[in-house]
């Protein structure tokens, strides 16, 4: 029988999960790939991290990860945020897997809230951590109702809500977790990525997997899948634009975080994707504030 072989380092099974759990998750992933955008229920396990902190993504990663993989973990686009560090360490410990911060070197990238700036390539897999997989949840709290809406492709509720936005605010007032339509059929929540990242979902050469642990759902976008951000003809989808370039690397095409520099209204904008920013700086790009920075000092105690 398929008994797990424990890795000597920890006494736990390879990548923590037992083989039966991995099979159950793998079956769900395959069905998710076969029905792009459809949320496949799965028997999510209690993980040694809290719900809401990436248990779905961790289970998906654990189910796909192999010895030859190179893993990158980001949170808010950064490899060095505490939760990303913690999840990366978990897989180093339980799967002895190679890790990297470089987007181009990774075969599996687990992410919370961002898609890397560097275009992903064929053979890479992006695993999203998803808090609320149901795009209709805040319009209809009942799963029994939203399941029927998906079965009937009845998405009127969302269109009404977006139209009300336009009527009230003159625009679709959604800036992250911006709903998309997959291959003209399923409405899907892309996880709370900023809508800036939505265009990267469309026809990506990489496999994109979404894991929601607490809500027990897995869904997927195979490579080269058509993904459209919802909009109206007279109010087309618009990507967030930034007025200033990254203060460190001068990037003008990247998503930027606002950093408050003093209590007198001073602020600057820097890349949220730390690998992208470092790579640009290594290539000689310089932002306005770089001369002034002390570099990567630790500021978390």
């Amino acid at each position: 029988m398929n008994a797990p072989t424990p890795t000597p380092a920890t006494g736990y099974a390879f990548a923590y999960l037992d083989e039966q759990t991995k099979r159950m998750i793998r079956r769900a992933i395959l069905k998710a790939v076969a029905i792009p955008g459809h949320q496949v229920p799965f028997a999510s396990r209690d993980m040694p991290m809290p719900y809401g902190w990436g248990t779905g993504g961790i289970q998906v990663t654990a189910a796909i990860l192999g010895r030859s993989d190179v893993l990158k973990v980001i949170d808010q686009g950064a490899d060095d945020t505490t939760n990303a560090v913690s999840i990366r360490a978990f897989f180093q410990k339980t799967a002895s897997v190679a890790v990297t911060t470089k987007t181009a070197e990774a075969t599996v990238i687990q992410t919370r809230h961002r898609i890397p700036e560097k275009p992903l390539t064929a053979g890479q897999t992006l695993v999203f951590q998803v808090p609320i997989p149901e795009p209709l949840r805040f319009l209809e709290p009942r799963e029994t109702e939203t399941r029927v809406m998906h079965a009937l492709a009845d998405y009127g509720l969302m269109h009404v809500k977006l139209y009300e936005d336009v009527a009230k605010h003159g625009r679709i007032a959604k800036t992250y977790a911006y709903p998309v339509e997959v291959e003209g059929r399923y409405m899907m929540d892309p996880s709370p990525i900023p809508k800036f990242d939505n265009p990267k979902l469309h026809m990506s050469p990489a496999l994109q997997l979404f894991g929601a642990g607490r809500e027990k759902r897995i869904y997927a976008l195979p490579p080269f899948t058509a993904v459209k951000s919802l909009d109206f003809e007279d109010h087309p989808f618009e990507r967030t634009k930034f007025e200033a370039p990254c203060a460190l690397c001068g990037a003008t095409d990247a998503y930027l975080d606002e950093v408050v520099t003093d209590d007198r209204g001073g602020r600057m904008f820097v890349c949220s994707d730390t690998d992208h920013c470092e790579e640009r700086r290594a290539a000689g790009h310089r932002g306005a504030m770089l001369a002034d920075t002390a570099g990567n000092e630790e500021n978390v105690r």
Binding site: N2, A3, P4, T5, A13, F14, E19, K22, R23, R26, I29, L30, V33, A63, I64, L65, G66, R67, L207
Partner: peptide, 13 residues
């Protein structure tokens, strides 16, 4: 079983 099923799964995926 652990590693052979993992590589088989990735091929099927």
């Amino acid at each position: 079983p652990v590693h052979e099923s993992q590589t088989t799964f990735r091929a099927v995926l």
